[in-house]
């Protein structure tokens, strides 16, 4: 696809804002932490060469909300409640999170609720020119530069200007009327070269590589998992913040004041809960915390899932490390696996 020279992010942002609701990571009063929020005023100044910071909560909820109404039952019939989503733009996604959305696209490919939200959404990704704290996207093929096919529009900083790559039909349509000039021919090649340089800036990932190897070769004993499992406080933070985690459960709520009418909702579930796999009989194939931990990391790093999804379930964002109270997020656990092998 052709690529363009963009001299002002502001122009692109305002152009998209004409027909889309705009969202981007922003801080809120009383804190510098970033959250995905509506952005009526236009792009923040954090893009380009400044140090990358990931919002701790990924954009997952825009497409797969923490809670979602599935249908109503009025006593007689079931009434489907597909979401009506106005066109929206997620502006400022990093490559890791875009890889996660591409992963979710596969998992939810037949889920009409997810698809209704996904079809209304344009993804605008930015190449990261520096590693973020705790990130290891380059180890798991999820960054630091945006992968083809994972975004609708890709932005790559070039001094005060931008290389704009429309990476999908939807992306191309969205910028058509901007009449942008083509980018200098050599910019694409320079981008490739720069990605290799940025990848070298990441700290050592030997523990991640060793851990992945041990998980795939199944050289971790049940006792070792059990010891690590003692540190799992079942908070569900890792699964809530993991941008590729997609497990949900459903529950019914009786409508207030009416007899025999219910709504069914789904909400994020966590495979670390003891009851996640418990069967009605009481039998539980993963009763011990160690077994649940083993399964979680297997889902993130097993080669089995590469066949199904084309990549690992981990996109190297490091959010689990940041949120895990028990000290068994990805870096901690991989270091233990490296040390205790």
């Amino acid at each position: 696809m052709k690529s363009y020279l963009l001299d002002s992010l502001e122009n692109l942002f305002q152009h998209l804002a004409v027909s889309h609701k705009m969202f981007e990571p922003q801080s809120i009063p009383g804190s510098e932490d970033l959250h995905w929020l509506p952005s009526p005023k236009g792009p923040t100044s954090r893009y380009g060469t400044s140090k990358q910071v990931l919002p701790l909560a990924p954009a997952k909820g825009f497409l797969f909300p923490e809670r979602e109404l599935l249908f109503r039952f009025d006593g007689q019939t079931f009434i489907e409640t597909l979401p009506e989503v106005a066109p929206q733009v997620l502006f400022g996604l990093q490559s890791c999170d875009l890889c996660a959305i591409a992963y979710q696209d596969q998992f939810f490919r037949q889920d009409s609720y997810y698809l209704a939200r996904r079809k209304a959404t344009i993804l605008v990704g930015f190449d990261c020119l520096t590693p973020c704290d705790g990130g290891f996207c380059s180890t798991v093929d999820a960054g630091p530069f945006v992968r083809d096919g994972s975004a609708d529009l890709i932005l790559h900083p070039k001094g005060n200007e931008w290389l704009l790559i429309p990476a999908s039909e939807q992306g191309l349509n969205a910028i058509q009327t901007l009449n942008l000039p083509p980018a200098p021919a050599e910019w694409r090649a320079e981008r490739e070269q720069q990605q290799a340089e940025v990848a070298k800036m990441f700290p050592t990932d030997s523990h991640i590589r060793t851990g992945i190897e041990r998980i795939n070769q199944a050289t971790i004993s049940a006792e070792q998992w059990q010891r690590l499992g003692l540190q799992c406080l079942t908070c569900s933070g890792c699964t809530s913040l993991c941008p590729t985690c997609s497990c949900f459960t459903t529950f019914d709520t009786k409508t207030e004041g009416e007899s025999n009418t219910f709504v069914r909702e789904r909400c994020w579930d966590s495979c670390l809960y003891e009851a996640f796999q418990r069967e009605t009989s009481g039998h539980n194939p993963s009763k011990e915390a160690g077994e649940r931990l083993q399964r979680y990391w297997f889902h993130k790093f097993s080669d089995h899932y590469v066949d199904e999804f084309g990549r690992y379930g981990c996109i190297g964002c490091g959010r689990c490390e940041e949120t895990c109270p028990g000290g068994i997020g990805v870096h901690s656990i991989m270091r233990r696996l490296e040390k205790e092998s």
Partner: peptide, 28 residues
Amino acid sequence: TGVEPLPQHPVSQGMLCVKGWSSAFALD
């Protein structure tokens, strides 16, 4: 509709427990 941990909070530093993560339900 949900909750987010706050990385810069001096006590929780981006962490929450299972009750905290579930606190939106308490407001139903």
